[in-house]
Design a protein around this nucleic acid. Structure first.
Ligand code: FES
Ligand code: FES
Lengths: 149, 149
DNA sequence: TTTTTCGTAACATCATTTGTTTCATGAAAA
DNA sequence: TTTTCATGAAACAAATGATGTTACGAAAAA
């Protein structure tokens, strides 16, 4: 199944932007993500609507983070992207008339709701600052191992 | 995103089969599910491979449950279907060379793994017998409300 | 005025699930 | 034995939805 990778994409883009002083262009991000500038604009547009980033046109334009890294959670990003469906598994008929299907749906939906709640809770506990520091840690570890060898 | 509804489908089919003495044909199940007999065979074939159902050809043929209702869990069914991908959200690049993507992937994967573990745990706690009794309960409630009105 | 860069719409591509057609095979009934 | 009913399996078609691409307009700076 083709999975929605927009959350992954915007995180990658935001980490790049966090390490940059000035704005970053869609072109640069697209190159980095291995995709098309239009796709970047389309996706980042959701974050702009949510007030998480700003964009400027013309010379020296591009994208900037418009929030404190510690205040942006994965959950906010997920919501900004329109809260896409979490699961790749679902009910055959969402509004069943018959009792058999209602029984099946109830069992599955309850379980999925529980798992989704956990997912969203975890998402709300992770900020961009966490990812940035995790990246710094990985970067330092890499340099360390390179120096040793 | 198009969600995999096979688990939902087989549950519906199995509940029907549980209320039936003899075997149930793919044709009957397909009519009930609103799909095609070939789709039913294809999907139920996974359960046959897992030993959960049997099939017979020819006159008076069809599908039978080959297990105790209380011993078949949703998790077993999920596994029989090949453990399809749980989430509709995923990483852009599953095997990233670069540290930024590794950082992003690690954060997302950890969270998804946790939610999936919860889902599978819940699945392993629900048996066909549970669903059958839930159905009976709903059925009784419906008859009761009908009698009152 | 030229260049850069985003904004947006429209269309193309790709991947995956689901549905359909078709024929072969086996088993029971006539 | 022949007919009928059912699954088994392969091959193909349709539908869906994410991602990629093209094209053009608008704004901002050089
Ligand atoms: S369709 Fe309602 S019982 Fe199967
Ligand atoms: S591609 Fe963006 S950092 Fe590796």
């Amino acid at each position: 199944m083709k999975r929605d990778s927009r959350l992954s994409s915007v995180l990658h883009a935001l980490l790049h932007m966090a390490e940059q002083d000035g704005p970053v262009t869609s072109e640069t991000l697209a190159l980095c993500l291995g995709t098309n500038p239009v796709v970047v604009r389309r996706t980042m547009g959701y974050l702009r609507q949510a007030g998480i980033v700003t964009s400027e046109r013309g010379h020296a334009g591009g994208w900037r983070i418009h929030a404190d890294l510690g205040s942006v959670t994965l959950r906010q990003l997920h919501e900004a992207l329109g809260e896409p469906a979490t699961f790749a598994i679902g009910n055959r008929n969402e509004t069943p008339g018959c009792l058999v299907e209602q029984t099946v749906n109830a069992a599955l939906e309850g379980t999925f709701a529980e798992a989704e709640a956990l997912l969203l809770t975890r998402f709300s506990e992770i900020t961009l600052a966490d990812l940035a520091s995790d990246f710094a840690r990985r970067h330092a570890a890499l340099r360390h191992s390179r120096n040793k060898s």
